[in-house]
Nucleic acid binder design. Structure first.
Length: 888
RNA sequence: GCGCGGUUAGCUCAGUGGUAGAGCACUACACUGACACUGUAGGGGUCACAGGUUCGAACCCUGUACCGCGCACCA
């Protein structure tokens, strides 16, 4: 045992223990272990990412689960790694290279050179977030770190692609996709974010061919796509227009084309809502999903009038060609106006899809892409529906179920360079398609598909691809399916649902048993954390300032199940304060000498000793229960309350009576209780506060000679505290022992109240007199005297206070504070009157209820009895107060 | 449009039928033998609104308003 320094300095201590844990191989998972398995796979952060508060929340929860599982005697695998994050990483690297002037466009380098650059970038920056997770205390098995582009992992991805291709679930087709004109790639539906936009609804008219002077009015938000219109559609049930079906109209743009080439048919289609706009819809099959479907039904051509980068092409006419789509919109409107066809412009709010990554409006675009018809949907749905897999909070069940019930095929190809390349080759001459996880034998005759796969097409294999699949590895045998998954609800479709499907398809089993969805971290005004707002604190700064334990505890205390978290640095401060409290309580214990080897002697236990043991038992129960229900903030709160309010504020103070009593036997027994409680508390705290608990565990000298599972080497493997149990309570005589302390607490609070009401400084020694009703033990009297900071506490069962003596009613009898100098009768009168008012009010409430016949008649007897008891108590208190008032 | 959350003290949130709670903030007092990153005492709430069920509602039911999120979407 070495003396603990005066203040807790987290930095050096954190580093010391993290290195120790790693050296000792404490995080390593052993598939040969006889212990029952517990496993989590980390949601792999972007390889180029930096630690955010979201990661802190997420990974602290995982670490708490993992550390607690170890203490419960499980063989724990927490498998870490990173994601190559295709589009995000490619964008970052490309931007950096442009900034440094190395390239103007990635084409300057070409595919292979560019890929090399990304790998270099990955090597340089890829480890950062892993190092940051270590600072947080994450107990991952780093020897198993994986990356979604590791060679073995890539093989898994290709194998799965080929398999799904052979099963006919992956196909290539020309479809309407979400196109990102900035990243120049297709996106999945999930990568499109709808945002309300303030736009304009334009109304223009077109002349019906062969009927001069007959016009149709069309409403549109996208006049720039008019050159791509191949029909106008009306609802066949719409009497206004039905007779025009089959005729043609003259498309106004581009104006330089001869009218004959601008004639487009009027078609009837049920999909047209005749309530909206004018009831006439312009049909642009190449630039709108709904229009594409109409086009298919009516066999319309689908000319693409745009370039991939969102500019108009030659088909849009010479005026629009080369112009950006938004610029073109303005020009198109001008043209319509000049032609006298523009009828109306009104402000209009509609939803526009934006690319999740580049935040650019997505362009619906017809293009050749790879699609996946999801496998094992039925099994994935059933797993959650029938409870084989549990979501926390439960309400995500519905969201998941709804999505799986309505899924569209997944567009999995991306026109990027960073990612897993589609394992498909086309024969240069005969056009044969070759899909294998190895290139064709005669590569010179084949061209590989240029596309790469959506990042999520690799991460959906994460739970088993990281464990050595497709080999039947020992790791898979031991740790799959995993126990818990901890992730944000924002990727429930992107990742969670898809992993479940992949799990069933390739392992024939669910990938995890429980999914805990964290909340989103927001700032204290409720705004999302974002770089541009500058409201996203750097967790590393917080760790440097407050310590990792403080950050962990602060964030866990404010993270209720399934609710968003409004992050406030105050909570980290609270965590820091709590660590200091823990530290100082330990120092206090240490002041009184080394850890006792002796057992607690039941005969010597005072009422407060028994009380704190019962409170400890309650804390063990509360923390265990809340953690089993994934209620981390409740667990943190229970710990906080137990340690600060119950242990430090009461027990530690009360224990001073024994510690300073001079009675060595009594002192030793009190120290034994302190050691017992602190030893349990440190273990309860360990999953939340790994560093400080380890430091104190060693610093306090807790039995370093013991075996691992008793915490000999590290607290990490010490047993998770079990409930004390019936035998324990009987042996130590704890049953019903709580009341004595509760009574004393009431006396102390009352006494301090008297002192304050009489304007006597807290540090001034005064004399209290307790007109005790029953027996008060010497020890209890000592505790009362100490905590009242009294010069003396006189026990006098027949005490008659002088007029005006401040007196309070307590469970142990009237407590008086006789004042020697001037007695302020008026003040005491005021105090009593105020209290009487309060009691009368309470009494009134109870009396009203009890005088209500239907209450007495219908309420359960014990409730009525409770009210009667309460009424009696209030009545007697009132009577006493009134007597006191009269005596003044 | 459909669905899901939320509305309780100045702030952030617990509280699922029987005496309204915590932390922070606030006020006052105190550097008494671990801790001022502290201690002690205190002030502060028609539990969003309107109906209903019940002896009894913050809690259950119906409806409304506002905030947030998700899904779908009308050009």
């Amino acid at each position: 045992m070495s003396e603990l320094p005066k203040t807790y300095e987290p930095q050096a201590i954190e580093e010391k223990w993290y290195a120790f844990w790693q050296e000792q191989g404490c995080f390593a998972a052993d598939p040969h272990s006889a212990k029952p398995p517990y496993s989590i796979v980390i949601p792999p952060p972007n390889v180029t990412g930096m630690l955010t508060l979201g990661h802190v929340l997420n990974n602290t929860i995982q670490d708490i689960l993992a550390r607690r599982a170890r203490m419960l005697g499980k063989e724990v695998l927490w498998l870490p790694g990173t994601d190559h994050a295709g589009i995000a990483t490619q964008t970052v690297v490309e931007r950096t290279l442009k900034k440094s002037g190395e390239i103007r466009h990635r084409d300057d380098l070409g595919r292979e050179k560019f890929q090399e650059k990304v790998w270099q970038w990955k090597e340089k920056h890829g480890g950062i977030i892993i190092q940051q997770l270590k600072k947080l205390g994450a107990s991952c098995d780093w020897s198993r770190e994986r990356f979604t582009m590791d060679p073995a992992y890539s093989e898994c991805v290709q194998r799965v692609f080929v398999d799904l291709y052979n099963k006919g679930l992956i196909y290539r087709g020309k479809r309407m996709v979400n196109w990102d004109p900035s990243a120049l790639t297709a996106l999945s539906d999930e990568e499109v974010i709808m945002k309300p936009q303030n736009g304009v609804l334009y109304q223009f008219k077109v002349e019906v061919s062969g009927a001069p002077g007959t016009f149709l009015s069309i409403a549109t938000t996208r006049p720039e796509t008019i050159p791509g219109d191949t029909a106008v559609a009306v609802n066949p049930k719409d009497q206004r227009y039905a007779h025009l079906i089959g005729k043609s109209v003259v498309r106004p743009l581009p104006p330089e084309l001869p009218v004959a080439q601008r004639l487009i048919p009027i078609v009837g289609d049920e999909q047209v809502d005749f309530e909206f706009g004018t009831g006439v819809l312009k049909v642009t099959p190449a630039h709108d999903k709904a229009d594409f479907e109409i086009g298919q039904r009516h066999k319309l051509a689908a000319p693409d009038v745009m370039n991939p980068n969102g500019t108009m092409n030659a088909l849009a006419g010479k005026e629009l060609a080369g112009k950006d789509r938004f610029e073109a919109r303005v020009l198109a409107v001008e043209r319509l106006r000049e032609l006298g066809l523009l009828e109306k412009e009104e402000p209009y709010q509609n939803n526009v899809g934006f690319s999740e990554r580049t935040d650019v409006p997505v362009e619906p675009r017809l293009s050749e892409q790879w699609f996946l018809k999801y496998p094992s949907v039925k099994e994935a749905k059933a797993a959650v529906a029938d409870g084989a897999m549990k979501f926390f909070p439960e309400r995500w069940d519905k969201v998941y179920d709804h999505w799986l019930g309505n899924i569209q095929d997944w567009c999995i190809s991306r026109q990027l360079w960073w990612g897993h390349r589609v394992p498909v080759w086309y024969h240069k001459k005969n056009g044969d398609v070759f899909c294998e996880n190895v290139p064709p034998a005669d590569p010179e005759n084949w061209t590989q598909d240029p596309d790469v796969l959506d990042t999520w097409f690799s991460s959906w294999l994460w739970p088993f691809a990281t464990m050595g699949w497709p080999e039947k590895t020992e790791t898979l045998a031991k740790f799959y399916p995993t126990t818990d998954l901890v992730t944000g609800p924002d990727i429930i479709f992107f990742w969670v649902a898809r992993m479940i499907m992949a799990g069933f398809e390739y392992m024939g089993e669910l990938p995890f048993r429980n999914v805990y969805f964290t909340g989103l971290i927001r700032d204290k005004q409720g705004r999302k954390m974002s770089k541009s707002l500058g409201n996203s604190p750097d967790p590393l700064d917080l760790i440097a300032q407050y310590g990792a334990d403080a950050l962990r505890f602060g964030i866990m205390r404010s993270a209720p199940l399934g609710q968003d978290i409004l992050f406030d640095e105050k909570n980290v401060e609270l965590g820091r304060n709590f660590c200091t409290k823990l530290w100082n309580a330990a120092r206090f214990r240490q002041m009184h000498g080394g850890v006792t080897e002796g057992e607690i002697n039941p005969v010597l236990l005072g009422s407060d000793d028994k009380w704190i043991l019962l409170r400890l038992d309650a804390a063990i129960a509360a923390v265990t229960e809340t953690l089993e229900g994934y209620q981390f903030s409740d667990a943190a709160q229970a710990l906080y309350r137990f340690f600060w309010t119950e242990f430090c504020d009461w027990y530690l103070e009360a224990s001073k009576a024994a510690l300073f009593s001079g009675d060595e036997e009594r002192k030793a027994n009190t120290l034994a209780v302190l050691d017992f409680v602190i030893g349990h508390a440190l273990r309860l705290f360990h999953p939340f506060l790994p560093f400080i608990t380890e430091e104190l565990w060693h610093g306090m000298g807790y039995r370093e000679d013991l075996p691992d599972d008793q915490g000999g080497r590290t607290i990490m493997y010490a047993k998770w505290p079990a409930r004390l149990g019936q035998d324990f309570e009987e042996y130590y005589g704890l049953e019903g022992a709580e009341q004595a302390t509760l009574d004393k607490q009431a006396v102390v609070t009352a006494g301090r109240g008297l002192r304050r009401d009489s304007n006597i400084a807290a540090n001034k020694k005064v004399r209290f007199i307790l007109k005790h009703k029953g027996e008060v033990s010497t020890q209890d009297a000592e505790v009362l005297k100490l905590l009242l900071n009294a010069e003396a506490l006189e026990l006098n069962a027949s005490y008659q206070p002088e007029k005006g003596t401040p007196t309070a009613i307590t469970p142990l009898g009237d407590l008086s504070l006789p004042l020697t100098g001037l007695i302020d009768v008026a003040a005491e009168k005021g105090r009593l009157t105020k209290e009487i008012q309060k009691v009368e009010q309470e009494l009134g409430k109870v009396a009203t209820k009890l005088s209500n016949e239907s209450f007495v008649g219908s309420a359960p007897p014990q409730v009525v009895e409770e009210h009667r008891q309460r009424q009696l108590e209030w009545q007697s208190k009132l009577a006493q107060l009134q007597r006191m008032l009269e005596a003044l």
